[in-house]
């Protein structure tokens, strides 16, 4: 199985929104390489005709009736907000869309 490079770790950090420091990148790349080397053993079963289990319970169709339940008050909803304005969550400028 292939190992993991520093560049890959940097890419994964961007995907997962972690502003890693340079030393961290080096350190994680080293450790993750070892970890991935160890866990890659699972691919021994990749070819086997075994159904995947994503969940330990054999439940299906768990649903709720379309009935309104009490919401939080706006004060409660906003109680943990780092910043709020006009009863909304205030966040820094958003990039990307538009």
């Amino acid at each position: 199985m292939p190992g993991i490079t520093r560049e890959e770790v940097a890419h994964l950090a961007r995907l997962s929104r972690l502003e890693l420091q340079a030393e961290e990148l080096d350190h994680f790349a080293e450790q993750l390489d070892v970890i991935i080397g160890a866990v890659a053993r699972v691919s021994e079963v990749a070819g086997q005709d075994v159904p995947p289990t994503s969940h330990p319970l054999p439940l299906t169709n768990v649903m709720r009736a379309d009935e309104v339940r009490p919401s939080l008050t706006p004060e409660q909803a906003l109680s943990g907000a780092p910043a709020a304005e006009e009863q909304r969550f205030r966040v820094p400028q958003i990039l990307g869309e538009d």
């Binding site: 909304r88 205030r90 990039l95």
Partner: peptide, 10 residues
């Protein structure tokens, strides 16, 4: 969105 200083979320 462009030029905005911040955004408010509902």
């Amino acid at each position: 969105i462009h030029g905005a200083s911040h955004s408010l979320l509902d």
